[in-house]
Amino acid sequence: MSDIKKFMFVNRKAPYGTIYALESLEVVLITAAFDQDVSLVFMDDGVYQMKKGQQTKGIEIKNFSPAYRALDGYDVEKLYVDKESMDARGLTEDDLLVDVTVLSRAEMGALMDEQDVILSF
């Protein structure tokens, strides 16, 4: 594809409580097939999507968190997490299930300015 655009997916919702997190993941996996420049951002309650050790048997909802570890194989390697959101939820990088880049709010804002398309979930 000649025209590569910068796509950013901004995830701000916790998993399971609403369908947004899963829907976002599915759109990301589909977008990845089109060889675009894809970044994922996790901020506010969205950082909970990255939490290690999710066990969903008891709520009878599919645990989709292992799929974030598959993103590397989809060439989706730009994962950004907002530090302030992690701090506010008592989480650190060690709590997350994949390697991410931790950014300040200001860095996140600057990164958003570089995008061609921003999709919010």
């Binding site: 996996l29 990845a32 097939a33 599919k62 645990n63 989709f64 292992p66 799929a67 570890r69 598959a70 194989g73 989809y74």
Partner: peptide
């Protein structure tokens, strides 16, 4: 088993 998704063909081929 590992990722809980069926891989896209491109991803499967590479893997």
């Amino acid at each position: 088993e590992e990722y809980q998704i069926a891989p896209a063909v491109r991803v499967l081929t590479k893997a």
